[in-house]
């Protein structure tokens, strides 16, 4: 019975680490504009960071061929030809880290043309690191209890 109880507690702890709501970080939403240059096969800047609730405007500037910018998780996108900048505006209402991906085939490495949008802190990464540590802890604890049995 005891190992099962410990296992149950550890699983419970894992669920808490993964899903427990965090105290919301308050910051008044502001409008932010980013000038993002797209070239084969990168965005410059490669990462943009905003706070949850911000109104984000991305001005996409293609500097060689036609590129796009698709925000993973948000499902919004914009395309720009060189010389014809395009803007994308959306409210960053989901927090976390999201990939920006080119959605106009722009050459061989196009599928790997990625950038990053950070909305608030990357809490899922921290939760994952904690889960990894908890996983190790569980292995030690369970190994000890099974040895004692």
């Amino acid at each position: 019975m005891r190992p099962y109880a410990i296992l149950f507690l550890l699983v419970l702890a894992g669920l808490v680490v993964a899903f427990a709501p965090l105290p919301a970080h308050f910051s008044a939403p502001v409008a932010r504009t980013f000038h993002v240059e797209a070239s084969q096969f990168a965005y410059q800047p490669g990462e943009i960071s905003v706070n949850p609730g911000d109104k984000v405007t991305i001005e996409l500037v293609s500097t060689d061929v036609v590129h796009g910018l698709y925000v993973d998780g948000y499902g919004v996108s914009v395309k720009a030809d060189p010389g014809q900048n395009a803007t994308l505006t959306f409210v960053a209402d989901k927090s976390g880290s999201f990939r920006l991906r080119c959605n106009v085939t722009c050459g061989a490495m196009h599928p790997f043309m990625v950038g990053k949008l950070n909305v608030g802190a990357n809490t899922w990464l921290y939760r994952s690191l904690a889960l990894a540590s908890l996983g190790i802890f569980s292995v030690f604890v369970l190994a000890r209890t099974t040895k004692m049995e």
Binding site: V65, V66, P82, G83
Partner: peptide, 8 residues
């Protein structure tokens, strides 16, 4: 008709 580089 679509810019495809310096030598488009």
């Amino acid at each position: 008709t679509r810019w495809c580089g310096l030598n488009h």
